[in-house]
Design a protein around this nucleic acid. Structure first.
Lengths: 187, 187
DNA sequence: TTCATTTTTTAACATTTGTAAAAAATTAAG
DNA sequence: CTTAATTTTTTACAAATGTTAAAAAATGAA
């Protein structure tokens, strides 16, 4: 997904504003397995995914907990680092070789204070993230594991093909054994 | 909590901007039990809580699921209505007689497009909400019910005193019986 | 293709959590 | 104060989920 399309997701920006933004974005690539952002660090970079798929996970005593997947067009950012300037929860691991658009968050902040179009664009970006996070929370609290799995199959069939089931199980909040049982029952 | 303090939570606004905002805010009161926002409706009003406590819940086949509590200083808004113009998930019920600051979201939108200070203020408001929602999600996915209950006791002891345990149990994602068991074990 | 590695499924058993109903405690109203 | 209504806890049993280990299946590299 190219950078113009990604930017336009959060509302049209005037030509000039858009140029100011793209000027501070660089394209980077990293191999599968690379860790883009690290848990416990205050991160100062954010990314948009041009191509590839990534996961966010935290290391717990009980093992790794996967809590987010990002795909083409998605925004990769430690909101806790960016908003509160505090250590982030997430390791972001690339599950495929990825092409990314990289941006320093301080450049973003600077633009917010200079340009009202930008401030509103940034507002919409965060609003979209909030809606998605809210949907996740609602899904976790209202639905059974079976319902969450079915929902995922319908809304994100590509995810099931691209990501191994251990990560999916963790994302759904159940053990891999439980997920296997659910899949067996659906046959 | 007065309106100035509430507004200041999301960054200082110039005198003039602040006046424009307060001009479109009215103070209202409603009795305990009143439903402020309704599930399945696109809502056009938002509120800040001056005094009192409220809960957000959804009606499910299995009963009501409580997924949020709001207290003094908190923002009450259907993000889905406001951001996506779609039907909201939540009923907002007042758990005490409440004093609220009411605002039409279209007035907010108008200010965002006129005033960069406002656009950034609104951005910060949403950022704060996002951080809180993210924390909730992380808590639901990473922690056991016992840990979530202890966390709630430490960070929100007032909530335990003001809200009945059935709602707390639902909020924690467990049955009331389970919560009783947890409380019994801690004695 | 073959072998080694990784991933997924299955099995057996333990633990947790839910459901329904009753008892106890608390709160509200007259 | 007394009674009724609501809320919380307890009990007994059923259902769901986790853990560990092993087997089966799938994937990938030589």
């Amino acid at each position: 997904m190219n950078i113009d399309k990604i930017i336009d997701q959060f509302g049209q920006l005037p030509e000039q504003s858009k140029n100011a933004l793209t000027a501070s974005i660089t394209e980077v690539t990293f191999p599968k397995g690379h860790i883009l952002l690290k848990e416990g660090k205050v991160e100062h970079r954010m990314y948009f995914i041009k191509k590839g798929i990534v996961r966010a996970y935290s290391d717990k005593a009980s093992g790794q907990v996967t809590f987010w997947f990002g795909q083409e067009g998605d925004t990769v950012i430690s909101m806790r680092s960016y908003v509160a300037n505090e250590k982030g929860y997430e390791n972001i691991e690339l599950l495929e070789n990825c092409e990314l658009y990289e941006l320093e968050t301080r450049n973003l902040r600077a633009l917010f204070n200079l340009d009202i179009h930008f401030a509103n664009w940034g507002r919409k970006l965060v609003e979209r993230e909030l809606i998605k996070t809210e949907e996740r929370l609602i899904s976790m609290q209202f639905k059974t594991a079976v319902e969450r799995y079915n929902e995922l199959m319908q809304t994100q069939p590509g995810l099931l093909r691209r990501v191994q089931l251990g990560y999916i199980a963790s994302y759904l909040g159940i053990s891999q054994v439980s997920l296997s049982r659910i899949r067996a029952d659906l046959r």
